[in-house]
Design a protein around this nucleic acid. Sequence first.
DNA 1: CCTTGATTGCGTACTTGTACGCTAGAAGTG
DNA 2: CACTTCTAGCGTACAAGTACGCAATCAAGG
Lengths: 196, 196
Amino acid sequence: MTSARAPRGTVTRARVVDAASRLIAAEGYENVTMRGLASELGVAPMSLYRHVASKDDLLDEVVDRLLSERWRPRSRESNWRRWMTEAADNLRALLVEQPAALHVFLSHPVVSPAALERMEAMMRVLRRVLGDDGQVIDAWAAVQMYTIGFAALEASREQRPDVGVPSSEVAGMLAGFATPHQFSVGLRYLLDGIEP
Amino acid sequence: MTSARAPRGTVTRARVVDAASRLIAAEGYENVTMRGLASELGVAPMSLYRHVASKDDLLDEVVDRLLSERWRPRSRESNWRRWMTEAADNLRALLVEQPAALHVFLSHPVVSPAALERMEAMMRVLRRVLGDDGQVIDAWAAVQMYTIGFAALEASREQRPDVGVPSSEVAGMLAGFATPHQFSVGLRYLLDGIEP
DNA sequence: CCTTGATTGCGTACTTGTACGCTAGAAGTG
DNA sequence: CACTTCTAGCGTACAAGTACGCAATCAAGG
């Protein structure tokens, strides 16, 4: 039998985060439960709570890892519009592909290490274009909010079939709203407005 | 005792929505449970599910009522920027003040009657400015995504105290991000980019 | 080594949404 | 009126997050 108490040190915050990352990648975020995670580690469910404050706390760290691997644009900072577009789109894609990440970004302002690194990089680029620090912050915030808002809708777009309202014109266009292309169009508006 | 089966017709979709609206207004969204709602109506919890598919389904309707009461701008459509700004800000305020509404808008594209009415009105205004229908849709989507994304962050801004990262410059500005003023600044960028 | 205190794994139990299927009573049929 | 059918109210039960407190084990001091 596998009963008996697990030895001390079996559970560690790092181990929990590792296991959670693996499980999320393998089974998908929505199929990961604290109970399942615990049994994966061979411990009782409540043992996890010595090392993470809550499931959300755990997710914060899992998502920071994902973000740190994926946020960086490939292009050079010299073409600021291209670079900013890529930075925004990388986050959008991450949020859409990883429901866990979307959950985290919608739950609270994300200030994990990777998020801060990304923010600082974006502000650095914007500062070269805009000069004024106040404007830099405004611009960054606008792009960030747009990105998260867009990702939220794109991710949640499982067709709602009927509506009971006949506006087929309206219903029809709702389908095509949340696409990566639409994202870049809106972002272009935003950057147009930002550019001095 | 209050046992015994409730007579037929005690529960109605409309009555459930009414009671839910009342409870949410009185106790706050996060304190409203299906069990509480049922006891408010004097029926067993599962009885509600004959009339609403789920809690989310119920919320959809509750939120549509809120939206229908609050989305309309006060200004005239002739000043399109002012009108659009008001329309966006009315939704932002609603989402921030009503966690139930935020939940609904983040869960799926909202196509309730009031949402459609609002969308059509906004598109009508944009059409007069932009002409081309394609651009109208793009512009509307951009504003909508920005609004929802911003509201999500503004609503979730309960201070996260430490971060473990010393960038006080960064941490400091994070505090001031999600304010109504910041919202209007970002929206101005967006409208600048949209305006022909 | 034994006592004492701190740390950590865990058993139990509560809350919330809701699936499933039973059943009482209304509505239709002969 | 008796019988069938359909429907709406409900009892039971389960999954998931996690509060609370006990207890096993480790570390420190004598």
